[in-house]
Amino acid sequence: MTTSIVVGLDGDGSGMRALDFAKKLAKGMGTCELILVYVIEWSPYSFQTAEENAVRHKRREEEIEAALERVVTPSVAALKKEGFSARGIVRHGDVADLLNTVAVEEGADQIVVARSSEGGFVKRVFGTATANLVMHATVPVTVVG
């Protein structure tokens, strides 16, 4: 049976650390698919002007394209070159919520994420995406330092 690992990407160094660790795990497991997930932070309850609403569909497509082009597609290509089985997913929403949702949908064995780099006031009040994921996930989570 093929196992799979969901890896949270964020477009910078911490996401790559998570990916490096996931690669190590995958090598040890044998047949393992790496599912790279990039979440574009978005809330259906945010406030926007009418003009922003009118171009929202277009912006959404652009955001997905940019995420695929800059982060997800190059990472997947690099993994495939190294001989891994890999694919990428880009979604809009809450990071913690979506990483868990994708892991459940895909039947993944675990989620690998990096320790968040957010800090300060926001972190103290709302917690980081990683902390929220660890608190609420229904799939095992590995946090890479």
Binding site: I40, W42, P44, Y45, S46, F47, Q48, T49, A50, N53, R56, H57, R60, E63, I64, R91, H92, G93, T101
Partner: peptide, 16 residues
Amino acid sequence: PKDAGEVSHFQALATA
């Protein structure tokens, strides 16, 4: 959920 990222009912109402 597949429409996440598009204008939601809440957003259209809040804007109006």
